[in-house]
Design a protein around this nucleic acid. Sequence first.
DNA 1: GAAACAAATGAATATATGCTCATTTGTTTC
DNA 2: GAAACAAATGAGCATATATTCATTTGTTTC
Lengths: 100, 100
Amino acid sequence: MTLSVLDEHTAARVAELFRAFSDTSRVRIMSTLVRDEKNVTELAKLVGVTESAISHHMRGLRQLHIVQARRDGKEVYYSIVDPHIVTLFQQGVDHIKAGE
Amino acid sequence: MTLSVLDEHTAARVAELFRAFSDTSRVRIMSTLVRDEKNVTELAKLVGVTESAISHHMRGLRQLHIVQARRDGKEVYYSIVDPHIVTLFQQGVDHIKAGE
DNA sequence: GAAACAAATGAATATATGCTCATTTGTTTC
DNA sequence: GAAACAAATGAGCATATATTCATTTGTTTC
């Protein structure tokens, strides 16, 4: 029985991953990035927070390799790195939309 | 473009769902419940926190309908309600174990 | 290179979260 | 019903988190 629990370190990394989607603003950011890349100004307008707040969120998501940045002139466009992440995220959304 | 973002209320509920797995202790709780139901004392030993802490976590997970409680005498056994939740959780674990 | 704009960063703050300790509630057994 | 044990609850505390404001960095265009 003692073996049947995830080790502390792995559990911490799993928690970190799910924590990425544990905030309303980040969920909304992800929900729109699923469709298309967006720059910070666009995300700020869509989500309804300041560009600064978006930048802070994007740093976290970048560090977890969930999103990647691409600069085009003055703008920085963000997109989701991994299709698996999209699936994981969508599954959460679908679960909620299915009425729970 | 304005339509392509999840509404505030749904996003909040999605965030709530992912937040359930955003803590190391809860990830460890889930990782062992995936195998089998467990009572509070067992969970406390496996996860390495007090029974009180487990109880607090279980209340949260219960309120989100992620786990259900079954009393057997003095003990209360917890199990995961929905197979979809197991899939969602496992996908997160697999993503991390795949080396990210 | 100055002006204008986009994005990032840092500091500060308010709120949320996870934990422990102390107490209460529920259940069994004598 | 008293004692013993399991679980739940509430208070309190320390830490983490999300946000905004002010400032800095990066890029373009004149």
